[in-house]
């Protein structure tokens, strides 16, 4: 069972194995060896990869690993297999409309109990000076609205919970 890191919504599986000199990094289509990491402080270190040394700045925040290498910044999320596989296959998950980006609610156009079809406007949000309409992902009944007008929310926040008709 390989390890997995999510970067920008894409999963990257990998495995690390020990060798006489540092570690070998097994990626989907290549093996890079040796790789090693020497920590210099709580937030800096030197990555040695295929004979090159790269200064790395890092912060580990739970499952998130924030990295700055060669002028680029990326955040990688370690996917714990126990959690990841447990979460899948959950057929009872209610339908929800989530925030595509952080923002603020401008106007809510439905009420709990309303029957909506896929594409029905649920609310208007404002983000980045632009108004965006949040639409129903599927047919269903509005069960709960999680935000109020003028309320701010983060990316991926659940805005509206729907239930399936006849459930």
């Amino acid at each position: 069972m390989y390890h997995s890191f999510e970067v920008d919504g894409v999963d990257h599986t990998l495995w690390l194995s020990a060798s006489r000199h540092g570690y070998r990094l097994h990626l989907r289509d290549e093996v890079i060896a040796p790789v090693a990491f020497t920590e210099r402080s709580d937030s800096s270190g030197i990555l040695t990869i295929a004979g090159q040394s790269e200064p790395v700045r890092f912060v580990i925040d739970g499952e998130l690993i924030h990295l700055h290498i060669r002028g680029r910044t990326r955040t990688l999320r370690y996917i714990d297999p126990l959690g990841a596989y447990a979460a899948g296959n959950d057929g009872t998950c209610p339908l929800v409309a989530r925030a595509p980006m952080p923002g603020r609610v401008v106007a809510i156009t439905v009420s709990p109990g309303d029957s909506v079809s896929a594409g029905t406007a649920l609310m208007m949000i404002e983000s980045m000076k632009l108004e965006t309409i949040i639409r129903s992902p599927q047919d269903g009944i509005v069960e709960r609205i999680h935000v109020k007008e003028n309320e701010s929310f983060e990316h991926d926040a659940v805005l509206v919970t729907l239930s399936k008709e006849g459930f």
Binding site: V7, L14, L25, E30, I32, F37, L47, I49
Partner: peptide
């Protein structure tokens, strides 16, 4: 690969 290597390590 440098990011994945660092994250892995």
């Amino acid at each position: 690969s440098a990011f994945l290597a660092s994250a892995a390590l």
